[in-house]
């Protein structure tokens, strides 16, 4: 376990900025309970500083996880967000899409978000921006990238794709073997 290097921090923050923009500041500046990013193996964890200090007493091969896993670095040095980061993403997300109950299950099975399933969406979503997908009762279901801006999406066919899925909570079941270690 170690803090991120400058290079790594830049990659991670660029990715996060897609979804939460300037709200990243809330992640780093928490006066009462300062949080830090930590790299263990190839995974990036976001954790309270206090806990990260306790974790130093666990040796590297034995430390499996701490705090919340945000994602992992690929072998080529890119950073991929995991669904486990959804809790923080949804909290600070700039752009949101709410889907109707009949669209919940298709989305949780790994499909993209269709126009027909949209209940409501943020007004000012540009094209190819990170969006968080929620159910109508405000339960975060996943995140993705908008395929069209809000205005264009209004004129879309019902079966047109509004957002490309990048992660959904169905992965907890589907990807259990690979998602965690």
């Amino acid at each position: 376990m170690r803090p991120l290097t400058e290079e790594e921090t830049k990659v991670v923050f660029e990715k996060l900025a897609n979804y939460i923009g300037r709200n990243i500041a809330f992640l780093i500046d928490n006066k009462e309970d300062p949080h830090v990013f930590r790299l263990q193996k190839d995974r990036v964890y976001y954790v309270s500083e206090r806990i990260s200090k306790f974790a130093t007493s666990v040796s590297r091969p034995n430390l499996m996880s701490l705090g919340i896993c945000f994602g992992k670095f690929t072998k080529t040095g890119k950073f991929r967000l995991h669904i486990t980061s959804l809790e923080y993403l949804s909290k600070y997300a700039k752009y949101k899409v709410w889907i109707k109950p009949n669209g919940e299950m298709p989305f949780l099975y790994g499909n993209h978000v269709l126009k027909a399933h949209i209940g409501k969406m943020s007004d000012d979503i540009p094209e190819h921006a990170g969006v968080v997908v929620l159910s109508m009762s405000d339960i975060p279901l996943g995140f993705g990238v908008s395929a069209k801006s809000t205005n264009e999406a209004r004129n879309l066919q019902p079966n047109g794709i509004v957002a490309f899925r990048q992660g959904d909570i169905g992965e907890y079941l589907r990807e259990e073997d690979t998602l965690f270690t």
């Binding site: 974790a55 919340i68 965690f180």
Partner: peptide, 11 residues
């Protein structure tokens, strides 16, 4: 992770 427990260290 699913239950959103942020105060854990797994070893």
């Amino acid at each position: 992770h699913r239950l959103g427990c942020t105060n854990t260290i797994v070893c």
